[in-house]
Design a protein around this nucleic acid. Structure first.
Lengths: 182, 182
DNA sequence: GTCGACATGTAAATTGTTACATGATTTA
DNA sequence: TAAATCATGTAACAATTTACATGTCGAC
């Protein structure tokens, strides 16, 4: 097992390809038009990333017959990499600074994880959020009178944002529980 | 007036220096320990960025006497750049993909904008959010039955996140209104 | 038949990551 | 006095941005 560095953008691309086979252009458009993370849709980012993924053996590029178009599909190695990404333990670091990536993981884990694994992910997300919110709350009580007004308000945005995500987490757990997903 | 490219990291650093004069190490620690955006705290990012800012004339570095330490302070040009950043009109793009940067702008505008300008910023933020939420809602009603379960849930996270920010905006407007800030 | 969207890419310059290097100061 | 933290930086490498380059396809 050789270690390949897989960037966040790589995972996002891999996730899209896993949902259905994609063209480079199609990937660009999805990054451009949807709120799918804050990834760049510039050709200078996407095409080199696709080359990287291909070189690492995570995706394969196939030419569409009688056309200049190409399609990308994932390999079993790519599927494995994705699954490992989905199953990677969630840290407080993650909820504090990379919640967007956690949401991306959730959005894409659809087909590769079963109901039990999905619920485990969401429960861990929820529990990490709870710990994180306790930390934020403690800081807030301790410092709120010493912080400048704008600093305090910006901090409170972070806090209510985390609370909203926690609420979402609980809702998602209920929804997944009620789903007939296997 | 020569046009200088100022990156998001540059603004974050400039904002910190504007609050109080800083050492490179101090800036690194603040990026590392606080939830101040997702900026890298690595020396290979911070020190070159400080060099850039110095070269552009936005900050000056002064040696602390009898020590290897240095301090960074902002110049009038740096203050101007910051103020222009604060006053830059808010777009739907911004609320959709760069709300973190908007929060950073708010957190730092403390000393450089007056109450009226601050309120204008928040009101514009609020109004843009409202428009954005209407767009998201429309998409949601239209597509919710066709989206895969995980896609729909991830989308709903984006929606409730935007709603939480809108709520925060309204709260912040009230708070600033009641403050004795000039 | 031309305009806009589709489609794929490259090149140069900038920026960021990872890892190293060095020394001062504090604290247990 | 040893370890941890403060403090500043560089070098090699990887990734991204910005701008360019080229050509196809469908609609009007």
């Amino acid at each position: 097992m050789d270690l390949i560095k897989i960037t966040s953008l790589d995972y996002a691309i891999l996730g899209l390809i896993h949902q259905k086979s994609q063209s480079g252009y199609g990937i660009r458009k999805q990054f451009e038009t949807t709120a799918l993370g804050n990834y760049s849709s510039s050709p200078g980012a996407i095409y080199p990333a696709l080359k990287r993924l291909q070189k690492s053996g995570l995706v394969i590029q196939t030419k569409v017959e009688g056309s200049t178009k190409t399609r990308f599909d994932y390999t079993s190695k790519g599927q494995n990499a994705l699954k490992n990404w989905f199953l990677k333990p969630i840290t407080i670091e993650d909820v504090a600074k990379k919640s967007e990536e956690l949401l991306l993981r959730f959005a894409f884990m659809d087909k590769l994880l079963n109901k039990k694994q999905t619920l485990k992910f969401l429960q861990s997300f929820r529990d990490s959020l709870k710990i994180y919110i306790v930390e934020l709350d403690a800081f807030h009580s301790r410092e709120k009178n010493d912080l400048p007004l704008h600093g305090r308000l910006a901090f409170e945005h972070g806090l209510s944002s985390a609370r909203a995500t926690l609420k979402w987490c609980k809702m998602a757990i209920t929804t997944i529980n009620q789903s007939k997903k296997t």
